[in-house]
Design a protein around this nucleic acid. Structure first.
Lengths: 222, 222
DNA sequence: AAATATTTTTAGGTTAACCTAATATTATTA
DNA sequence: TAATAATATTAGGTTAACCTAAAAATATTT
């Protein structure tokens, strides 16, 4: 019985209510999730069906063992994402909190572990943390202005992946029509002196690009 | 006109079809998203309403300028999450691809930029990358066995946040009833010799915990 | 205890996102 | 070109997740 994201949210809200106030009531869960009480009743009945809560009308909502487990796990995921945003990426707390919700539903054990490890790594290696902070700062200020390299910066034999095609609409259209589309892998076959033209292979086809055109193609080396 | 996550997915699929095959057809979009053609028609009509695609029945689906932009942005977010999972966290490609989808809808500019910066940072600093890889390995093998510290490991004046309460159900119940609930902040007021008992303050209340109990409370220093 | 207020529940409605099955359209091939 | 196959569209149904508004149950005052 896999829960929907929404039901997982309800479970978590109930978990927090239980923790904060000792018990969870329809009204408070409703307020916490910003929905109407009737929606909570509906959700709780579904959770009851699935065996995650105990509930008799009029009574408090209480989590069963499996319910506790799911809620706890979801909460931990939430926490780790928050920690990552806050401590590693340096997103402001409030903003981090907003971003966090939603992501915790898309994590599995491996992701969770890896993210935890990363948080710890940064925590234990303040030099790395410092270094990254400086790096990110200059990145933000546009000093590492273009995050992706362009095709003209590579040489014979390099295998690249197209990220984006820039330039005016007409040129872009033309390049895309040639198969230079985001995600496409290309191999540089030959670069003429002074970088013009550049011959590449993609999907088995050969293509010759002017340097000006090559400059419009953002790529990533693979 | 904010799009739903689902419609953003349709937009992205259309984008990729256009890029890969030069044009997007209902059938192919359906296959790509693993839905029925009728669902695609419905979604496309909604996208048309919202001004993101041009579509006359029987014809191909084509993105408008705003449609292109949204699709491109979503794709870039997807890519950066993928890059992060793959290059930084070391999740295997296939698995990373699965995890990626879903997350790209929960990102904003700041998150995107920070994550990009992190990927670059790791790329440019292979020593850091190496170091983390080793760290994560030992972490995975349980050598950094417990990711969270426990309450008994801290001293007077430390401010902590409760992460989890472990122990048998009975003890857990009791500790939680005392207010030691996940997320709760506590301050250590006094630690008796040999660490037993530990006095803490939470929500303005004083609490005295046996060392055995303190060991059950996973915390994080804040 | 009666009156009032609060909370919970039910009943019935809406929307997005799917579906199946039938029909219409467009392509392909005999 | 007629028959067949492939695609696309429509019509109508389902489910989750919301809602409003009214009714029922509990609590709280006077």
């Amino acid at each position: 019985m896999a829960l929907t994201e929404t039901l997982e949210d309800y479970l978590q809200a109930i978990f927090h209510e239980e923790n904060e106030k000792g018990m969870a009531r329809v009204k408070d869960v409703a307020k916490k999730l910003a929905v109407r009480a009737s929606s909570v009743v509906e959700a709780v009945n579904r959770l009851k069906e699935a065996g995650y809560v105990l509930y008799e009308k009029g009574d408090f909502i209480r989590l069963t063992e499996p319910g506790q487990e799911v809620a706890q796990r979801t909460f931990e995921r939430n926490l780790v994402v928050y920690r990552f945003l806050d401590q590693v990426l340096g997103v402001e707390p409030e903003h981090a909190r907003k971003l966090t919700c939603g992501i915790e539903h898309h994590m599995d054990r491996q992701f969770f572990d890896a993210l935890s490890a990363l948080c710890f790594f940064f925590e234990r290696n303040s030099d790395v943390q410092e270094k990254f902070r400086r790096f990110a700062d200059s990145y933000e200020k546009g000093m590492i202005c273009d995050m992706y390299a362009t095709l003209d910066q590579f040489g014979k034999g390099d295998t690249l992946k197209v990220i984006k095609v820039s330039g005016d609409a007409f040129l872009r259209q033309r390049l895309i029509a040639m198969g230079l589309t985001p995600g496409q892998e290309i191999v540089i076959e030959r670069v003429a002196p002074l970088g013009d033209p550049v011959d590449v292979v993609l999907r088995g086809y050969h293509l010759s690009l002017r340097k000006e055109e090559a400059k419009c193609i953002k790529v990533e080396k693979i």
